[in-house]
Design a protein around this nucleic acid. Sequence first.
DNA 1: CAGACCGGTAGCTAAGCTCT
DNA 2: AGAGCTTAGCTACCGGTCTG
Length: 272
Amino acid sequence: MSDATSTTPACPPVTSPDLTTFARVDALGLRVDAQQIWPDKAILFCSLLTVDDRCPRCGAGGRVHDQVLRRFTHLPVGRRPTWLSVRVPRFRCDGCGRVWRHSLKTVARPRSKLTRAADWWALCQVVLDHTPISGVAAVLDVSWDTAHTAVTDVGTQLLIDHPGRLDGVEVVGVDEHAWRHTRKGDKYVTVIIDLTPIRDDTGPARLLDLVEGRSKKAFKTWLEAQTDQFRARVAIVAMDGFTGFKTAAAEAVPDATAVMDPFYAEVLVMTM
DNA sequence: CAGACCGGTAGCTAAGCTCT
DNA sequence: AGAGCTTAGCTACCGGTCTG
């Protein structure tokens, strides 16, 4: 039985084996033409599903000039990395003579070694499964920097820049954290978290932001950088005993109630 | 010791140019 | 027309160092 309100996905049809859809390269605008299975990796030789032969400069049609090979790292199968070897045509414009190659922006970020699907997989590994960057890099068979760049770029784009990220925040927690101990002294950041789920008993706290330094100015500047709606919705600001945070909250969100974090309140009672 | 960070650099990409 | 060369800019990789 099914109706329009049912959330059960429809049973997909049973089809013949198809490596293009199984390896999810169709979503990248590619088709798998051949495969090569090594003990430590799989290589899928791909071609483009569609090519745009219009000149980006004058709009006239172009002829195939030559072809270049691009290699990408794609979603792993189990713990075995998958490479895509993509044949990309270069065109020469019949009108202005310009030479250009077909854009691969549907396949990967500019100059990236990882496909967009691999970017997404890496981000999920780190954010949802708490896999270290080195673990993701090992499975993909890329360097730590490559995996780190992909996770931070896509994470910033999808999570940090998400317009609804601060929606529904009513209880803000603030604290300082020493993120690096050096011979020249410790470096601190101000940590800002959403404690609304804790108050409502609906889930864990959520990290909202990290700001360099630990000062009234750091916290106040962050609060003032948010929208009027955000500041109007904040009802409670929980903090340690640092008066700078309390002053910042009083000046930037005057209608909110400043409270001491239960952890610090407990420590205060124990030391009395 | 594992993981993260960082500076230097080799090698790659993209696009234009030249040669055959 | 097609293949190969050139070059600026960029990225991935490497190795050393730091941190917890």
